[in-house]
Nucleic acid binder design. Structure first.
Length: 270
DNA sequence: CGCACCCCCTGCCGGC
DNA sequence: TGCCGGCAGGGGGTGC
């Protein structure tokens, strides 16, 4: 489900509500996620204050007052929902975190591909990926040019590799490559410096616009308060195979690249 | 290194 | 209407 704009939307909604607050109770109802929730997860979280609620790539990172990090990954179908007071249990509500002031944060995840953990701060790079965040100013044309050199893989695969760049997923890679005018199967190592600059600019633009519109709600994405995002209404190519390109009218193509469905315009992208 | 192909899991949609 | 296959925004592992 969620990529960087969706995670950032959730973070912006939830952070002001949980920062500085103490966690009074943690109810783990289902620990069988793809990586099972550790036995001591609830004990490591209960009683702690959330100092800061941060994001790196697709991970949410709660900085706890004991120096450890509360790590949340939503996988494909995870949702975090904040509510006042106790909430009726829904199917797939796997973890319920209650804060002082009777605020409740619920982790719901039908497919259970997400991850919840409390880790030592030193382990964050290993656990939550070391790639530069896709919204960071550090991701500039020079860095992307360097990352792509001597790489034979496709630019799409490189942009989605969380160890190099953190936060981009299937929707936004299609969208930003359309905006940059670069075909998704182009060999990364053969991109020019100018093309790398266009990709970086398109990444910043598309992500900022998506965050502004609250992310993309395709099937089940909702923000921290259950609200839909709107960016799907301005998708240029994603999930539009066979339809007319909004810019030039050419039929949008759909192909599978590194195992993921990929969309591009053969006229606008070279 | 790069990729094709598995896996994890539930839900939804289209075709029959 | 119902069943079934395919596919879905995530990531990880293996083997070639």
């Amino acid at each position: 489900m969620p990529e960087l704009p969706e995670i950032e939307t959730i973070r912006r909604g939830i952070a002001p509500e949980v920062e500085g607050r103490r966690i009074v109770a943690v109810d783990v109802r289902e620990r069988r996620l793809r990586t099972p929730i550790a036995r001591d997860f609830a004990d490591r979280l209960a009683g702690r204050h959330v100092v800061q609620f941060d994001r790196h790539g697709k991970f949410l990172l709660g900085h706890l007052d004991d120096g450890r990090l509360w790590l949340v990954h939503l996988g494909m179908s995870g949702q975090l929902t904040l509510a006042d007071g106790p909430v009726p249990a829904r199917t797939h509500d796997h973890v319920v975190v209650r804060f002082e002031g009777d605020r409740t944060l619920t982790y719901n995840d039908p497919r259970r591909f997400g991850r919840l953990a409390v880790i030592d701060a030193a382990a964050v790079a290993a656990e939550a990926g070391g790639g530069v965040d896709a919204l960071s100013p550090a991701l500039d044309a020079g860095l992307l040019f360097a990352l792509t050199r001597r790489r034979r893989t496709s630019i799409k695969a490189l942009l989605m590799d969380q160890r190099r760049i953190a936060g981009l997923g299937n929707i936004y890679v299609s969208e930003l490559l359309f905006r940059a005018g670069v075909r998704p199967r182009r060999a990364a190592g053969r991109l020019s410096r100018a093309e790398c600059a266009r990709i970086v600019a398109a990444t910043a633009h598309v992500l900022a616009e998506a965050v502004r519109l609250g992310g993309s709600s395709i099937n089940d994405y909702r923000d921290g308060f259950g609200r839909y995002g709107c960016f799907q209404s301005v998708h240029q190519v994603y999930d539009r195979a066979g339809e007319a390109c909004r810019r030039c009218g050419t039929t949008v193509r759909g192909v599978v690249v590194v195992g993921r469905s990929t969309f591009w315009c053969p006229t606008c992208q070279r």
